[in-house]
Design a protein around this nucleic acid. Sequence first.
DNA 1: AACAATTTCAACCGCGGTATA
DNA 2: TTATACCGCGGTTGAAATTGT
Length: 272
Amino acid sequence: MGLKKGPWATEEDQILTSYIEKHGHGNWRALPKQAGLLRCGKSCRLRWINYLRPDIKRGNFTAEEEESIIKLHEMLGNRWSAIAAKLPGRTDNEIKNVWHTHLKKKLPKTEHQQSSKAKRASKLKIKRSDSNSSTITQSEPATLCLRDTETSSACTTTTIATTTSSDFTSVGDESKNDKSEDIESVEEETLPEIDESFWSEAAMDGEIETPITLPPSKSLTISNEIMPLQYPFNDDETFQQSYGSNSNLEDGMDFWYDIFIKTEDPVDLPEF
DNA sequence: AACAATTTCAACCGCGGTATA
DNA sequence: TTATACCGCGGTTGAAATTGT
């Protein structure tokens, strides 16, 4: 109520800077009142972080910085704060703007689309065709269907023909180390080289399924503990199960996996 | 020179996660 | 255990600047 919005005046900048230099910014919400600013704490924080703090680097991005952003975006997706952490003096907001206004245009279309692979790969689904089993043994052929959970469009499909473990291991909320290995195996080893057709509209609409094969050394387990998360089931003809997991990988990278398994042969599901 | 269209980027908004009572 | 406050992040907005006609 009665708080100022919009661009900051030089006078406001001076008040904020001098207050933080003297007292720090322990509590952003209380800061504007104590400093005598008619701004909300959120606005003060943003102004300080994105413009006023002394370690901000000014000026255009260098070619090296731009190259770093492109590479980091390829790895991390739109995780601007994580990208900014690798570029001293640059803010997430600034990097986000540079990406949308300059860098995105520089990339060839296919490269740009593939740069969102990290985002797509972070959301997978396993679909299974029957409704009676939670344990899929190595003898049972199953299909791993990777889907973009935001658009519900199929990305790719893999037939799980061989595995060395008796169960498939999925991504549960427990056992982060095991989970990380599985996630990495899916991302780095099971995703095939992607050609143009992968990103075609037909593929996105689920009309094209690209078979890929899991390495024999990798396994997938469906944990009973996360079964309750699978309700409610979808109403469509194919029985679907969704497995969610938030996993901390290296450097605090977070991934969500929603996985569907579609089996070719009926398998037993436990009671929920 | 005047106007329209486009681009840029600082700031806002809403959401989710975490801390604290 | 629950409610509330706060913080930080990513998406979006819109005014200002730039470019095109």
